[in-house]
Design a protein around this nucleic acid. Structure first.
Ligand SMILES: [Mn+2]
Ligand SMILES: [Mn+2]
Ligand SMILES: [Mn+2]
Ligand SMILES: [Mn+2]
Lengths: 141, 141
DNA sequence: CAGAAAGTTTAGCTAGTGCTAAACTTTTGC
DNA sequence: GCAAAAGTTTAGCACTAGCTAAACTTTCTG
């Protein structure tokens, strides 16, 4: 009995972590993308975010309102979107992770297009331990 | 101009694929888990699924109704859940992927607990090309 | 075999993430 | 400087995925 309960707890921990990863995922991707646009053009407009994300303008607007309530972004009506300090933190963290995962996939021999696509999803499910192992692998190759 | 549009298309393809991965994810995990329980105990009961997934019974019941409409599972009222042929296909596919990803992480030097957790999320975002590369890496080590 | 325990279903709620269409504002180009 | 184009916001819809609480059915146990 004890054993059964314990093993279910272990099993469910993985699913629970994956669900947690998913709720953080969108914020990471948005902040990373907004940072990218600010670097490129000095500001991040809703249209550009929508275009790169592959969603509608309306979806971006609604999400930006939510993230603004959460203190990740700042925006004046009808103006471009900027990151708060918290937003920049997510963006930088996301970039670092993203780069390591993508470089790792490339080092593994994956084509650059596929590495880019796979990294976009994998990056959110990689623990610190795994990220470090990927970085180590990269250093050794 | 042309260049800008093309590069946004490439960028958005990654996000679009990740969103598609996410909508398939739950079905994969449920079918895999149901298969596991059937192997272990001969049937998959709602409570056991809920326990291993870390969600409530009610969530499982609702999801099972949806999956039954989609032809992935079969169930009589107040009885355990079984997989259709389509459900088995998802389960087998998921198991194969899951095993390769987890083994790969272990081969990379990740601890078994973390490998188990990370694999649960990563498995859904790994393309065929990457899966093959992981299998190749495994064979070589 | 009756009552308790275990398991299942249903109802009703919340929140997130997407969409289109329409209204509104800002920017651009003549 | 005005009209058209571009961009933004809002409203309203749909679906997914979670929850608790209550009603119901099945199984277990004394
Ligand atoms: Mn991503
Ligand atoms: Mn999984
Ligand atoms: Mn799995
Ligand atoms: Mn994911």
């Amino acid at each position: 009995m004890k054993r059964k309960i314990a093993s279910s707890k272990l099993r469910s921990a993985a699913f629970t972590r994956t669900r947690a990863d998913h709720s953080a995922e969108l914020a990471h991707d948005y902040c990373e993308l907004i940072a990218e646009l600010i670097d490129e053009k000095g500001e991040a407009r809703g249209t550009d975010i929508a275009l790169r994300l592959g969603v509608s303008n309306a979806t971006v607007a609604k999400t930006m309102k939510r993230f603004s309530d959460q203190g990740l972004v700042e925006q004046e009506p009808y103006r471009a979107i900027f990151l708060t300090a918290d937003g920049w933190k997510l963006a930088e963290d996301g970039r670092r992770k993203h780069a390591i995962v993508e470089q790792f996939l490339l080092a593994l021999g994956i084509s650059s297009k596929v590495a880019q696509v796979d990294a976009e999803g994998i990056e959110h499910h990689v623990s610190d331990e795994t990220l470090k192992a990927m970085a180590r692998f990269l250093a050794r190759n």
